[in-house]
Design a protein around this nucleic acid. Structure first.
Lengths: 182, 182
DNA sequence: TGCAGATATATCGATCTGATATATAGTCGC
DNA sequence: GCGACTATATATCAGATCGATATATCTGCA
């Protein structure tokens, strides 16, 4: 079997402790790993089939009334594969932040308008920060500490970013004093 | 004309002040926007054709000896398009950080091995930090301040991330005192 | 009863990555 | 003046991924 994609390991990790459907996996991702690793249905459903074919997970029918539903759980091989991956050094580090891209080219705008860019970035980061905080609030006591470490990291990061935007706003305003008040 | 992709605007922004070839654009991206917006040849060359077809840039032959070479420069329409985009609120914010993903699932490993994950993340961030610092060092005085603001932001961010990893290492070690010394 | 919203699976065009292929130009040592 | 190496330059392709959409069924509530 060739190399699995990181998204495959997201699935392996999420079905490790309890069986889940593709829909549930998507929902859990959106409430946990989303800010550092997102996944869409277009990846999840095909990947579930691949993983099942490779014997790393097994699916079983678990319909709700008349609606078909397949939940998957991890196999011993799957657990092994997951641990092997966890021991490899990570390879993927990406960021795509359109706001920074706009700030990079802000010289194409008249002076003063760059401030709007950092303000928009700051507002967005604070929004994400609030979302993460609300997720943190509804997590109770769990014996697995790592998801909470990562979640708190996300909260700290978005806060740091928002603060950086604030500092840059001041810096830009100081350099371009002709900015009109909004 | 439909919506251009953010990568199209990277190109527009980079040919705004001086004509460049696709190869040069790739090289500039790798030394500037890479850490918050990467671009590959597979995007750049087709996008150059699209933009030229749309009249936002114009290409002209500029061979070096017997090797063909096309450099592109922005048109008035292209400048307009770029400014219009800069004034729109940013839409894309993504992060894909395999290290955080591994940390998230670190409970699948025996206690103590999670530390290796944060150490690897920290090492990588410090590496990127050093790269960005060396880029900063060789930039002279330029009248456009925005690329430097973004670059310094990248330096601060990678440093912050590395420090966070260090704090998490201590926190994890404090919680799992049985870790063997490396 | 009706309807909104959640559950569930599937698909598709567009974007993007990473690798690879193909050439030519310049540079350095020997 | 040869060979090795690196830089310049363009192009392409499989596979990963996104975002949106389509199709059903179920649940709760007004």
């Amino acid at each position: 079997m060739e190399q699995l994609s990181p998204t495959a390991y997201v699935i392996l990790g999420l079905v490790r402790n309890e069986p889940r459907s593709g829909y549930e996996i998507k929902a859990v991702v959106d409430n946990s790993t989303r800010f550092f690793w997102a996944a869409s249905y277009g990846q999840i459903y095909p990947e579930l089939k691949n993983l099942a074919e490779a014997g790393l997970i097994v699916g079983s029918d678990s319909p709700t009334g008349g609606r078909r539903r397949t939940v998957y759980e991890i196999t011993a091989d799957g657990e092994e594969e997951l641990r092997a991956w966890l021991r490899q050094p990570p390879h993927t580090f990406e960021m795509r932040e359109e706001g920074l891209l706009k700030l990079f080219f802000a010289d194409a705008l008249p002076p003063g308008e760059a401030v709007a860019i950092v303000r928009a970035m700051r507002a967005h980061r604070l929004e994400v920060n609030a979302q993460l905080r609300s997720i943190e609030a509804l997590k109770g006591e769990i014996d697995d500490p790592y998801p909470m470490i990562v979640l708190r990291g996300g909260i700290e990061f978005t806060q740091w970013f928002a603060d950086w935007c604030e500092r840059m706003e001041e810096e830009i305003l100081a350099a371009a004093p002709k900015e009109r008040s909004s």
